[in-house]
């Protein structure tokens, strides 16, 4: 997987994140360091509660690290911005009162401040890109789960952000649809080479998507290891893929024989 430039887009150095809740102080992430290069697909893999979503929200600017530095393009990500777009697992991330086209146009109008004619053209192009041509005028509640996630993807890509922050975006889809969407994401990435920071708890998904996979331990989340991954191209039945699966299971403390999901 050739990556043209190896410049760093996101740099986390010894990041710790704590929350104060009614039950006391919760430590979500401790001492996490990693770097995401421009144009790569970087996966955060770990069990529920390992703070991977919190890290993602920190990059997005919704959560501030308690300690350490988290740099985006060399600056601290203190505020949310349209250069780092989050895609959620929940299907309710689309504005229900706007059509598919309206949702994409809304993002462009608000975040990119495009004039009206350019707006519509650009929105339609990205709706085509995710394979939803013909559904421009449909309201979100009439769409299936995967179609909603496609709209969210189109809306995010249309903004041409520096990075897509994907928080288990396919987590609520059935297994077949998820596989299809993973392939679709691959296709779209090959067209746009957008940097993707992808959070998942699925080993298979991590291998299918990531150029690099950061394995995290739970409570508080720490870095177990960061692996280079080339098994995606070899295919899920290849020895390479199976070997990678075994390795990740080991790192997650699941043993070699554990079946995923």
């Amino acid at each position: 997987m050739a990556i043209a430039a190896h410049d760093t887009l996101i740099e986390a150095s010894r990041v710790s994140i704590q929350f104060t809740t009614a039950a006391g102080v919760v430590e979500a992430v401790r001492d996490v360091s990693f770097q995401v290069r421009r144009g790569e697909k970087f996966v955060l893999l770990g069990p529920s509660g390992c703070g991977k979503s919190t890290l993602l929200k920190a990059v997005a600017g919704f959560v501030r690290p308690t300690a350490g530095t988290l740099l985006f393009e060399g600056r601290e990500a203190r505020e949310p911005g349209a250069d780092r777009i989050l895609i959620f697992q929940e299907f309710d991330q689309l504005l229900p009162w706007k059509t598919v086209l309206g949702n994409v146009q809304f993002a462009l109008r608000v975040a990119a401040r495009l004039p009206a004619d350019a707006l519509s053209q650009r929105a339609r192009a990205y709706i085509r890109l995710v394979g939803l041509e013909g559904f421009e005028r449909a309201y979100p509640h009439t769409l299936s789960g995967s179609m909603k996630q496609r709209v969210a993807l189109a809306r995010s890509l249309a903004l041409d952000p520096e990075v897509l922050l994907m928080d288990e975006p396919f987590g609520s889809l059935d297994a077949l649809t998820r596989l299809h969407m993973q392939n679709e994401l691959g296709r779209i990435w090959r067209e746009h080479r957008k940097t993707i920071l992808f959070v998942t708890h699925s080993i298979q998904e991590a291998i299918l998507i990531g150029h690099r996979i950061m394995v995290m331990t739970p409570r508080p989340g720490r870095v177990r290891e960061i692996l280079d991954n080339t098994a995606a191209d070899a295919g899920p039945d290849s020895p390479e893929f199976v070997q990678m699966q075994g390795r990740l299971r080991g790192l997650l403390g699941l043993g070699d024989r554990g079946h995923e999901e």
């Binding site: 085509r128 394979g131 939803l132 041509e133 013909g134 559904f135 005028r137 449909a138 309201y139 009439t142 769409l143 299936s144 789960g145 995967s146 179609m147 889809l173 059935d174 297994a175 077949l176 649809t177 299809h180 679709e184 296709r187």
Partner: peptide, 25 residues
């Protein structure tokens, strides 16, 4: 360019979803 994928294929109501795909509201 791919055609809209009938994502409900493995879902509980494949027929209903297919219907939606053909005739969006």
């Amino acid at each position: 360019m791919v055609a809209p994928h009938p994502s409900g294929a493995a879902g509980a109501e494949p027929a209903a979803r297919a219907e939606r795909l053909e005739r969006p509201e």
